[in-house]
Nucleic acid binder design. Structure first.
Length: 399
RNA sequence: GGUGGGAUAGUCAAGUGGCCAACGACGGUGGACUGUAAAUCCGCUCCCUUUGGGUUCAGAGGUUCGACUCCUCUUCCCACCA
């Protein structure tokens, strides 16, 4: 039982620091029913969670299964600084209402995965603001600049002459201080957070918390491109609130290599099962597309339900395998004759008439499934299905 | 505070008076091939109903027939020295 729990916790993790402590905590739980705390920090700057976040959330859910109480930390104080790990140098300051709204939508999404009864939502503003200037100084004095520059981001940016704001140095310290305040037993985060996570350990020691948190790092999930990390700003993400059709389609669009990564980090299938599937693909007994469909179904069903996931697959096949028109298309209408390029822009499937003209020239535009080439074309009254490329559709009614 | 360097399209990055809407790379996008996969190949990639017109190269002025390129000021960044 204990071994099984440990294996499940270890699954997919990139690195665990102080694994002995995790073992001890679990042992105490199994033998005495003693709970422990698992901290994970979230930045409320964007209101939507994507699958990259769910890698962490799923791990938290695993801890909850085995006695962990999740400290779901909302970084409403640190958000003002911006974690240096992103490349954005400065971050705009969010209004209180925005943050509140983001937090609300954040937690609703998170509870699709987490067990609400075993989750404490905490806000670091509550204690960091109280820290004051004196407390900040004290905190800042615990670390040398040389140590700080050890952090990969900082040294790279420093080496490449990219600016670093002094306030950014505070970020790891404050995140570490969160662990002091919360007396966390375990903290989990992405591998890019290693420095910050370790800071928690160090500060817990410095501030004499009597314990040092274990640290579990999860790999960073790559985005749809398979190279960069999944993030909203790179637009390579699958959002947990994405429509079933989009979700299904996006999963199917990832490369075969990336698919294994998604399996490992997102699927609930056991590692053995995944290994079996993988060897099936390798020896040719399983088609990779089928395998990817399975994954897409699983993921879509998790955030919606089985029914909707199946419908998404049927819809997908209809549009892409049989090249038919999707069931739901945005509808637009207009008065009088319209020039085709203008119509495409009005239907939001082209960004500008210039782009529309180029696409027409290249034969990317279809009306009612027929390729068109006349860029002077005027649409007179009637109903048209407009299409650009393989994915963009709109229905236009000309009166 | 001093000295020097820099700011170019989504990103990186050429361009040092006309040949510049601006090389190239990446990204994005369209097409071919497929499994809407990857890889590969070809096209497109500021806006405008376009053999043309308009607005761009941090910002504001100026020199010039003509400026991304020269001058002045402003803003921001970097390095070295203090």
């Amino acid at each position: 039982m204990l071994q099984e729990a440990l294996r499940e916790i270890d699954r997919g993790s990139a690195e665990i620091i102080d694994n002995e402590r995790i073992e001890k905590l679990l042992k105490a739980y199994f033998e005495e029913g003693k709970p422990y705390t698992v901290k994970a920090g979230f930045d409320p700057t964007a209101p939507d969670l994507h699958l990259g976040h769910t890698v962490l959330l799923q791990k938290l859910a695993t801890f909850q299964k085995y006695g962990g109480i999740v400290q779901f930390l909302i970084g409403n104080f640190t958000a003002a600084i911006g974690d240096p790990s992103g490349k954005s140098a400065t971050r705009k300051v969010l209004s209180q209402e925005d943050i509140k709204k983001n937090i609300a939508s954040y937690t609703t999404q998170a509870f699709k995965i987490l067990d609400k009864s075993k989750t404490e939502i905490v806000y670091n503003k509550d204690w960091l603001e109280a820290l004051g200037a004196a407390g900040m100084l004290e905190l800042a004095s615990t670390l040398t600049v040389a140590r700080m520059l050890e952090r990969d981001d900082f040294s790279k940016r420093h080496a490449s002459n990219t600016p670093i704001a002094v306030s950014e140095f505070m970020y790891p310290l404050l995140q570490g201080y969160d662990s002091v305040h919360l007396k966390s037993d375990v903290e989990i985060g992405g591998t890019d957070q290693k420095f910050n996570l370790l800071m928690g350990r160090q500060l817990q020691k410095t501030y004499d918390v009597k314990k040092q948190q274990a640290v579990l790092m999860m790999p960073i999930l790559e985005g749809l491109d398979g190279i960069q990390k999944m993030s909203k700003s790179l637009n390579n993400y699958i959002g947990v609130t994405d429509e079933p059709n989009d979700m299904f389609g996006k999963v199917l669009s990832i490369s075969d290599d990336l698919m294994w990564r998604f399996y490992e980090l997102l699927s609930t299938k056991s590692l053995e099962e995944i290994a079996t599937i993988k060897s099936g693909v390798e020896d040719g007994s399983l088609h990779p597309k089928k395998v990817k469909e399975e994954l897409a179904l699983e993921i879509t069903a998790r955030f919606h339900n089985d029914e909707l996931a199946k419908e998404a697959k049927i819809e997908f096949d209809k549009v892409h395998v049989k090249s038919q028109i999707p069931t739901d298309i945005d509808e637009y209408s207009c008065e009088g004759e319209v020039w085709i390029a203008k119509a495409l822009v009005d239907c939001n499937i082209e960004p500008s008439t210039s782009q529309a003209r180029r696409d027409i020239k290249q034969g990317a535009v279809k009306i009612n499934q027929e390729k068109i080439s006349d860029m002077q074309l005027q649409l007179c009254s009637g109903e048209y299905i407009l299409q650009v490329g393989k994915r963009k559709f709109a229905k236009l009614k000309v009166n």
